[in-house]
């Protein structure tokens, strides 16, 4: 177990952004929000799966919806307290342990709002090990764990409980609700007990902190350093889809994305592919670039980080292979 203070937040955010593989949004506002909470309520404990209490309820949470809208409609605690009270009501005796549903990007920070306010620990783990566009692209979904119940709350404190029986139903129901909730909501899904810690990807928060301190994992490969030379994007089915070109002295590298960077090719040769994590970093400032913040003319470094082991398993790999995404 270790504690994180508000000063650790930017490091966590940076490492999480790298794991976001181009997805995960801009953490600026959430960083300030969490910083503000932790200034009032104090540090947060991060625990490992060994340290979970027997009667715990592990609650993975995340923001869902349009990032641009939450840049305009800044969250209040209401969206979090409504969720907490609903879960508390349904599970009055268990000890709640929070967890980021998705470590890639801003959502690494999401559990800290509640964790700080109510003094709850956060499990050093997540459900994906990076970011992916769809809800079925997470470990519990692939291992056929039920997302029943799934909770969603909105900015006014409205709450809804879903009982999907299939993973496709989860995606459809959540989309519908999020639209009704004016495009931003908090979700708590794939709620786990101690028996099901095999459904998480362990160590995600620690990994983010390491990355954030500029300690790249041993088998990280720097693929290129060049300039963003071209960007094509469109909104397809609610996902930001398209490609960008990084021009180096010798090559033109095409990066395909659907919310996240999923494929990198040089001519016809694939040099990085989902589930490998593709990170683009501003060469001058070190800021992590997301699909939304791609800009023509900036000098960037292209990195490839090995996928979390789970994604290489025969069950998982077909679910997130580039072919699944209709990229080219």
């Amino acid at each position: 177990m270790y504690t994180l203070s508000k000063n650790d937040l930017p490091i966590l955010a940076k490492g999480a952004a790298i794991l976001g593989s181009g997805g995960g949004g801009n953490p600026k506002v959430l960083l300030d929000l969490v910083h503000h909470q932790m200034s009032q309520h104090g540090d947060v404990s991060i625990i490992s799966t060994d340290e979970l209490p027997d009667n715990c309820l592990i609650v993975p949470i995340a923001f869902v919806g349009a990032p641009l809208i939450s840049m305009e409609k800044i969250p209040s605690m209401k969206i979090f307290t409504a969720l907490y009270e609903k879960i508390r009501k349904d599970f009055p005796t268990q000890q709640i342990v929070l967890m980021p549903a998705e470590i890639g990007g801003c959502n690494a920070l999401t559990p800290f709002m509640l964790a700080s306010k109510y003094g709850l620990p956060i499990l050093d783990a997540d459900l994906i090990g990076r970011a992916f566009p769809k809800l079925n692209m997470c470990k519990p979904a692939i291992l056929d764990y039920q997302a029943d119940p799934t909770y969603l709350t909105d900015f006014h404190g409205n709450a809804i409980t879903l009982h999907p029986q299939k993973i496709d139903a989860l995606e459809d129901m959540v989309r519908e609700v999020v639209v009704r909730f004016s495009s931003t909501a908090i979700i708590a899904t794939f709620i786990l007990t101690r028996d099901h810690t095999d459904k998480v990807i362990p160590g995600s928060i620690s990994r983010s902190l390491e990355l954030g301190k500029n300690a790249l994992p041993l088998n990280t490969i720097q693929l290129a350093r060049g300039y963003i030379n071209d960007i094509h994007h469109q909104l397809a089915g609610g996902f930001l889809t398209g490609h960008a070109v990084i021009k180096t002295a010798q090559h033109d590298i095409k990066i395909y994305f659907q919310n996240e960077f999923l494929l990198a090719k040089h001519k016809n040769e694939t040099i990085a592919a989902s589930p490998e994590i593709i990170a683009i970093i501003d060469a001058k400032s070190g800021i992590v670039i997301t699909t939304e913040s791609l800009q023509f003319g900036i000098e960037v470094i292209l990195l490839k980080i090995p996928a979390p082991d789970f994604w290489l398993s025969p069950q998982a790999l077909p679910v997130v292979h580039p072919n699944v995404f209709n990229l080219e």
Partner: peptide, 11 residues
């Protein structure tokens, strides 16, 4: 801002 954002100005 009827939803009462929880971030003070000029943070």
């Amino acid at each position: 801002a009827g939803h009462q954002p929880d971030l003070p100005p000029l943070y």
